[in-house]
Design a protein around this nucleic acid. Structure first.
Lengths: 206, 206, 206, 206
DNA sequence: AATGAATGAGGGTTCATTCAT
DNA sequence: GATGAATGAACCCTCATTCAT
């Protein structure tokens, strides 16, 4: 890749990063191309030259978003030293955003009236995201922390639910000064033992 | 209230209903005053006369939304015949929309850049929604289906999480022809006994 | 029609007049809505409110144009006192614009890529313009100035050709100070006797 | 001219050909530099390097257009074997585009607001086009098919009028399967004998 | 009181043109 | 010398909002 292409690629990334951030924060509809251009420090027209229009830009943003997420995911899974619980903790807590089934707020809003994007997400889930995730669940079963009678589908839904909940209230899970350690412990309890709890002693924190 | 005022009040309600439905479906940004006026069969200007502007209309819509929801909630709670589990089922499954902590997609998007609305939601939660909810949790504890060591805050978060997850995938929980009963049972298991499960037999479906 | 409607109607006419004039002069493509709005002394948006968009405005302009022309045409034809030659002179010379088959430059340019407009023109020609014109040709035949063996179609084409040519060079036909009377006489000769001419004496001027 | 210059010249021609074709078809305003560049398979900037800007490109296109036409014209006139009628037929019918007075639609639209182009056309007409044309008229007079009393100016106008009419409705004059031979004959009649016709028998078709 | 009419501001997009390699 | 990249200006259009009846 020569100098031209490298600079072009970098600019495209700038634009996509700017777009992604603004879209996530304010919603696709509300963000103007002008805003994105300003944030990425390019002219509006450059965005049109690269992406063709707002619709396509949104699409590309989503592609980048999912690819970024999945590679983070992959990185965690690939660490053969870690236990299921460790990996889970990394996935759920440390990453500030996470997509297992790729149905974060951001995506859901967009998908509503964009069939091509729906299609893309569906394919991506089935072909890339879910297979990866199955590996993780297998490990959890082998290590005895996922009940063997639970179907994969149910576990997927459950983990995804937790993942989303944590994303939507990240402040509750970060070990900040104000963090409420007891609260986190309780959620761990709930995660592993449910609402009725178990009679045994305390568990580690996820 | 005389005839004039009653007609005025009815028109206001028409407008709010129309607005709420459109806002929920398409997002606040995307819905134009013209659309709302058409749906409510009034002139655009009438909306301005009644509400002052789009911002105020959004605010009033949210107020109505929360009040509607809370009265549904109240209705369920007030039925002294029902057990905790029954009430929970009604709240989680039967209502197609539910707000415990009032942080549905719809609201979260709007709140982002509207401090007055954030304030309103916060106050409403603290003063109206959460107290109601505490009643429910108490009943659950008394009936032994909520572990007594779990803090109210944790239970609140947990239930809210389930509620949201069910809303985001309503198709998984409706008893339609294609419903996967085993899946629903499993989620019930997860709800009460967590990921590790319990050694006992099956539980009822929530 | 009340005051509201009358004012609205007048504004619509202002806009159509402005549009028509600019379109004729500079071409549809080149004229911006803003220009039309300025000339008609309304806001751009008013144009959108009335006509919906540029395409529709163009269409309405054409409709008005054809209707105006046809009523001028009708007025000439309706005068039962006039001979064929007199009417022809009025049609060809006095009116600065004339449409027999409605294929003036203006229209031809627009029609090229607008099937609905083509359709409209075709229908208008067949149902309104041509029938009127046939009346005129009949009179010409009866008065012996149109050779009886000439088909209607050929005469139509011929007159239309003259009409267009005169429109495209109006300065040659106006009785201005610089007018070249001999030239006009010659064209009359050509009109009635063709390139080879006849052996008889001079004819009147059309 | 060396290899470099020859290649450059060829590129210029490609560009002019592409421009001319697009301008004629879609109008100057509607055609973008990008379109021309694509059709001519060069970069946009090359067009700027060669021609300086769209205005100049339009001008050069017109020059090429007129030169092409006049050399076609010249070719027909130079054939000393052909009679006036034969030449006329070639000019009017066989060539799909023809400019005698150079006032085709294409040119007229452009000229409207471009004084330099108006000037060029005027000069070209007076110095090149019209003198050539006078040759033709002389031949017609000598062969007795143009009445000797008709001024050159009138004949010019007349032929030009026919030429344009034929261009604007080429389908009526092509000897296609659906051609209406009687119609063409009638127009020939009109051409030579005018609206009143002559008493003699039929004439050949032009 | 209620509404049809009117508009300023802003959004997405295209284009002729210049810059920089 | 030729080109991919970049842009200011302008266009069509929509929307929240105000005016005038």
């Amino acid at each position: 890749m020569n100098g031209f292409e490298r600079r072009k690629e970098r600019k495209k990334m700038n634009i996509l990063d700017a777009a992604l951030e603004l879209f996530s924060t304010d919603g696709v509809q509300k963000v103007s191309i002008q805003e994105i251009a300003s944030k990425a420090q390019v002219s509006q027209v450059t965005i049109y030259n690269y992406f063709g229009g707002k619709d396509e830009l949104v699409f590309e943003s989503i592609k980048k978003f999912t690819e970024d997420k999945i590679s983070q995911f992959q990185a965690v899974l690939d660490d053969n030293e870690k236990s299921f619980k460790d990996k889970l903790r990394d996935l759920l807590r440390d990453k500030n955003e996470n997509i297992l089934l790729l149905n974060s707020d951001f995506l859901r809003t967009i998908m509503s009236d964009r069939p091509e994007i729906q299609e893309f997400i569906k394919n991506f889930s089935e072909q890339t995201s879910i297979p990866l995730f199955m590996e993780l669940v297998k490990q959890g079963r082998n290590e005895g922390v996922i009940h063997k009678d639970l179907s994969f589908k149910a576990v997927l839904f459950y983990l995804n639910m937790y993942s989303q909940a944590m994303q939507s209230r990240p402040e509750l899970f970060q070990y900040s000064e104000e963090a409420d350690y007891r609260f986190i412990e309780e959620l761990t309890q709930l995660f592993f033992y449910g609402l009725m709890g178990n009679s045994e002693g305390p568990t580690e924190t996820i």
